[in-house]
């Protein structure tokens, strides 16, 4: 016999539990995984170079790293930066310090980042892995300063997730254009390994973005009755309900797509960096 503190024998104290499985594994790998991506994204932003590859061609086409897309400014002071003609607002302002994060990346990255940070899946992961609230099911959480208020007080901004979604859709449009552009070099159509990598990037990101819970709500989830409006009556209810079902299919895979798309963004940026720096060769129909 062994006496325990707490009625019912429930363990008291932070992270205490009677669970005997490896409950700590999931918060550990998700916490580390996201941390590694964040460090890499910051590295890309701080370095601000090797984000463009067109093998010296100056016409239409080339590979643009997703960390710098859409390209607001082109910094000609860095190695393997994009040509000024590819940027929206021309050359990067000279007063922008070179040791500071790249102006394009610094202005763009907060948009997809805000989408991920307010995403309902990411909320689960980081409330568990970083806030330990709780770290795993039936495991005691970290102490709460004051009364627990959930997402009602400081975290009220989470309710604006749908606006982060709108921004993510805009960025997705630019990444799709980048994928199209990657099939051209100097205006000549072709295919390179980079084209395939840059094409898969918006496909995975689109599957993640359009499986979002806020999108699922907006596309039809907010309706109580799919068949009750005249439009859907005419169309046999299929359009609205069908769209909601399609988004639901993606939504059921939201966690998987969140991770795969994030890893692929990192890999795409790394691939462009390696090719642009000359560390590896991009095999393509244009010749190397």
């Amino acid at each position: 016999m062994a006496a325990e503190t707490g009625t019912g024998g429930h363990a008291a104290g932070m992270f205490k539990t009677l669970r005997t499985d490896a409950w700590w594994f999931e918060p550990l790998w998700t916490g580390l995984g996201f941390l590694i991506f964040t460090i890499y994204a910051n590295y890309e932003m701080m370095k601000g170079d090797n984000y463009w590859f067109s093998n010296g061609a100056h016409g239409f086409g080339g590979y643009l790293s997703p960390f710098f897309s859409p390209l607001l400014f082109a910094d000609t002071r860095v190695w393997a930066g994009a040509p000024v003609a590819e940027s929206f607002f021309g050359e990067a302002p000279t007063w922008w310090p070179t040791w500071f994060p790249s102006i394009s990346a610094a202005l763009i990255l907060p948009l997809p980042l805000s989408f991920r940070l307010t995403c309902y899946y990411y909320r689960k992961f980081y409330y568990r892995a970083y806030f330990m609230s709780p770290p795993a099911c039936a495991v005691n959480p970290a102490p709460q300063p004051g009364k627990y208020e959930g997402e009602r007080m400081l975290l009220l901004f989470q309710n604006l997730h749908r606006y982060a979604l709108y921004a993510a859709i805009v960025v997705l449009g630019f990444l799709s254009y980048d994928a199209f552009m990657s099939f051209f070099r100097d205006g000549v159509f072709g295919v390179g390994v980079g084209s395939l990598i840059l094409t898969l990037n918006p496909i995975l990101l689109g599957s993640y973005t359009f499986g979002c819970h806020a999108w699922r709500h907006l596309i039809g989830g907010k309706k109580d009755c799919f068949s009750c409006d005249a439009f859907n009556h005419d169309k046999g209810m299929k359009k609205s309900y069908g769209a909601w079902r399609a988004v639901t299919w993606l939504n059921e895979r939201h966690m998987l797509l969140a991770w795969v798309s994030m890893i692929w963004v990192g890999w795409t940026g790394l691939y462009v960096r390696l090719v642009a720096s000359g560390a590896i060769t991009d095999f393509s129909t244009w010749g190397n």
């Binding site: 689960k124 959930g150 997402e151 009602r152 009220l156």
Partner: peptide
């Protein structure tokens, strides 16, 4: 607003109801 989407309710449901994704969110 007190639910912070940690999904433990969904994890333990013996009827496999998508409590978090299909109801709370």
């Amino acid at each position: 607003g007190l639910c912070n989407i940690t999904r433990c309710c969904t994890d333990v449901c013996p009827e496999h109801i998508g409590i978090t994704d299909n109801a709370i969110i």
